[in-house]
Structure formats: C-alpha cells, structure tokens
Design a binder for these strands. Structure first.
Ligand SMILES: Nc1ncnc2c1ncn2[C@@H]1O[C@H](COP(=O)(O)O)[C@@H](O)[C@H]1O
Ligand SMILES: Nc1ncnc2c1ncn2[C@@H]1O[C@H](COP(=O)(O)O)[C@@H](O)[C@H]1O
Ligand SMILES: [Zn+2]
Ligand SMILES: [Zn+2]
Lengths: 221, 221
DNA sequence: TATTCCGATAGTGAC
DNA sequence: GTCACTATCGGAATGAG
C-alpha cells in the first residue's frame, strides 16, 4: 500500500509550516510552493487544500465550475507573483527593462513611461494530462525550460506538447483529444524547441544544449 | 579507399596455407574456413576462389547458372562435413543417437539399424541479402544461434529473417522481394525465437537467454 | 565486419 | 507522465598507408 513519492505533495498541504523554505504562501484554500525538481528556471506549484478535490484527477476536479474558477483566480495571482520574481531575476539582462529604467532615470522623466517587459506572458499555468503526483497541483512555470533537473524527453514533452493543458482551456469540450492522452502519444513526440521550432528528434542532449543558448537570448528580450 | 576489415576474407583465398587453424579444406575452386566470429555453435564459410566471381555480390554472381550449380554442390559437401562435426559435438546428448547406439551395442544387433539424428537438417546454407564482407562467401551454419559472438539484433536477424537467403532459393525470381532488402526492413524486425516463435520485441538479452535454454533442449533431440 | 563511446530507452523499487 | 539506479538498447565514428 504504498506510501511512495507520488504522495509527497500532500505534506505541503497538511503541514505547510514544516516547509518554510519551500512554501511561498498559504491561505485557507491553497498552498503555493517551489517545485523541488524545477523544469524551468522558475517553477512553482499551486496546491488546492480541499481534501476531496486534492485527490482527484485535475480533469475531474475541474468539472466543478465554481472550484475551477477559484483555481483560475488563485493561479492568476501566483502567476503575477512569479512574474515579479522573473523581473528580479532577469530584469538586469532585459532590453525592454533597460529602456524603462533609462526613462525612470532620465531628468526629467518622460510623460509616458515605457511599460517594461511583460513577464506574465513568459509564464504558463496548467496541468499535466496524466499527472504522476497524486495530489492535485497546478504548474506555474516559466517558458524557458532551462534547468538541470530537466533530464529526459518526457520531462520536456510533458510541458511542450498538448500533454500540458493550460488552465484557460478548461472546461475541456467533450471531443477534446486531450481526454485520451495515451492514444495521442504526446510524450513520444519528437523533441521540438519551444522557441524556434527546431526539431531534435530523439536527441535530448542536443535539445538541452540548444535550450541553453535560447535561454541566453530569451532573458535579454 | 580502403583496406579495411571488410576485405579480410580475401586473405584466406589467396593464401590458405597461412591459416592452418581456420582452413578446413581447400581445392582449386573453393576454400572452406571457420567463421572467426561464429553466430552459432558451428559456423563455417565457403569461399569461392574465382577472382572475378569472388568480388561480386552473391545475387549477381549466382546469375551464372553453371557457377551457381558448382557452389550448390560444394556447399552440400561442406554441409555434410559440418553435420559430421555436429554429430561429434552433440551426439552424446542426442536421444536419437542414443537409440542408434543402443541398437549397435545390442547382441544380436537388430536387422534394421535406427538412422540416428539427421544433422544435415540442423544446418543452413545461404548468403546475406546485403553482405558486409566484400569477398563472396556462403554461410554454412547450425540453426542454434548459440554463441557469445552473437551480440546484437542485426547479427540475429541477418540469419533469422529473409535477409538470410538459402542457397536453394537461387536463382531468385525477378519479383522476389529479397532483391530489395532495405525496403523490407528485415534487420529491424522484432526478435523472434527460431525454434518456438516467441517474440522478444527489442529485448536482445532476453532472447539470448532464451536461446541458451533452447540450445539445451535442441541438442538433446 | 568488429570495437568503442555516448546517449536514449526501459524496468524497478521506493515505505 | 515522481526520482534514482541499473541494465540494456541504439546510433555514430573508427579504420589505413
Ligand atoms: N517532494 C516534492 N516536492 C515538490 N515538488 C515535487 C516533489 N516531488 C515531485 N515534485 C514535482 O511535482 C511535479 C509533478 O508533476 P506531474 O505529476 O507530472 O504534474 C513535478 O514537476 C515534480 O518536479
Ligand atoms: N577475419 C575474418 N575471418 C573469418 N570470418 C570473418 C572475419 N571477419 C568477419 N568474418 C565473418 O564473416 C561473415 C560476414 O558476414 P556477411 O558479410 O554479413 O555475410 C560474418 O559471419 C563474420 O563473422
Ligand atoms: Zn530554438
Ligand atoms: Zn524459443
């Protein structure tokens, strides 16, 4: 009966104060944490605390429209928080941020302040069509996939194919092919760069090297 | 432009006396040797010595009916010789041979002596649809595929699929699919036990373990 | 052809 | 499609004078 790692996320929900380094915030309905094995340079998880819902498959849990709406709202908040963190991390490298900073530093500053980079766009929120961890969790993750912990094809394709289902796509229509992800073989697909579309076939290490280069350019936008 | 290993069989033909351990016999037209990397417990090669023919692809060389006939005759001789060797190797394990031996030892011996095992049936003669070694050679090989040198799928499938073309199938008809072996993907096929037909998919090591068991039973027939 | 190197793939066990 | 460990599988390069 197995207590194995697949149930480890439950501990954050039951006992968030035991993980001060990992828990970003908590409230009555959610706990937000840092993913322990991040698949991008920033990777957070939103964990609903409802005892019933948290043991359901996300597709099942999100059939409850009211619950789905609460999750979307909370994920939106966490996404903004994550965007702020991206700004702190990469703002100094970003061309768009430099333009804004230059305007701020100008004497006198211009009437219209450039907006700076929209980091929210660089973060995706969603679930895996077949989660491996048993407790309901929503990924809030930067698009870069620049991480040493991203170690194989399934790691990558679980975020880079329709296997990753964005929160905004819920509720799924009844004919959506993502209801039957195994048939679709999403995780077996060729490895394709999320940024330039280059196809790396089965060559994970080559993709990873390439993603390192893409990361260097992406943070500088 | 190369002198590489693919030409190594030529040395046996040009200079058979240099390989006394490997050469089984020689005459004006052929040299018979032991395969240096045997893919069965007994694996011989018949090498035609004709300077022109020996540099041709077997399908091309065998278009010459007279030559083909000579090869068939010589291969038949070598096959019988190999059968004798199999009898020496496994006769003591063979049930059919034991019956014959018991009859021989009886007092008085019966009028009809049991034939003993037909070892010729356990030896196949033929060529690979796409040989890797450049000098013409005909495999004379026991069916067992019990050998440490059989190390990967292509080794096995080159003898266990239509990639192996028995001598008796020549001349090939013009519509024979073996004229175009690449298209057929013979070497990529699932691994299937020659004896019981069990399918091992891509699991070469599991097949090999199984072949060890089959060998133990096969020699006892 | 064989050998070697490296990387991709597949199965397992985890309390 | 948890991670971590192992064994196996698979392609690519090599080679010679
Ligand atoms: N103990 C853990 N603490 C935090 N995150 C984890 C832990 N174990 C696994 N994860 C993450 O949980 C996520 C599960 O993803 P999935 O079940 O495929 O939707 C992965 O991103 C893992 O990196
Ligand atoms: N130097 C060698 N001496 C004897 N046999 C060899 C040598 N090199 C390779 N072989 C065998 O030659 C055969 C070539 O098979 P193929 O070219 O695929 O028909 C294989 O069975 C090898 O084991
Ligand atoms: Zn790219
Ligand atoms: Zn079998």
């Amino acid at each position: 009966m197995g207590s194995n790692r697949r149930d480890d996320l439950g501990a954050y929900v039951r006992n968030p104060e035991s993980f001060p380094k990992d828990v970003i915030y908590q409230n009555e309905e959610f706990v937000a944490i840092r993913d322990k094995f991040p698949k991008s340079s920033l990777h957070l998880l939103l964990l609903p605390r409802d005892r019933i819902k948290m043991r359901k498959h996300p597709f099942e849990a999100f059939k409850d429209a009211e619950f789905l709406e609460k999750v979307k709202v909370e994920a939106g908040k966490l996404q903004k928080l994550a965007a702020s963190e991206l700004r702190r991390m990469y703002g100094k490298d970003s061309a768009q941020e430099k333009v804004r900073q230059a305007a701020l530093d100008a004497h006198p500053p211009p009437d219209e302040l450039p907006a700076g980079r929209d980091w929210v766009k660089e973060i995706k929120c969603g679930v895996h069509a077949v989660p491996s961890m048993n407790d309901l969790h929503i990924h809030v993750i930067a698009v870069d996939h620049y991480s040493e912990r991203m170690k194989h094809r399934k790691h990558y394709n679980s975020f880079a194919t329709p296997f990753f289902v964005p929160l905004e796509d819920f509720p799924l229509k009844s004919d959506d092919s993502r209801w039957h992800p195994e048939r679709e073989g999403y995780l077996r697909r060729d490895l394709v760069c999320w940024r330039c579309g280059r196809n790396f076939g089965n060559s994970f290490e080559k993709l990873k090297t390439h993603l390192w280069k893409e990361f260097g350019e992406w943070k500088k936008i």
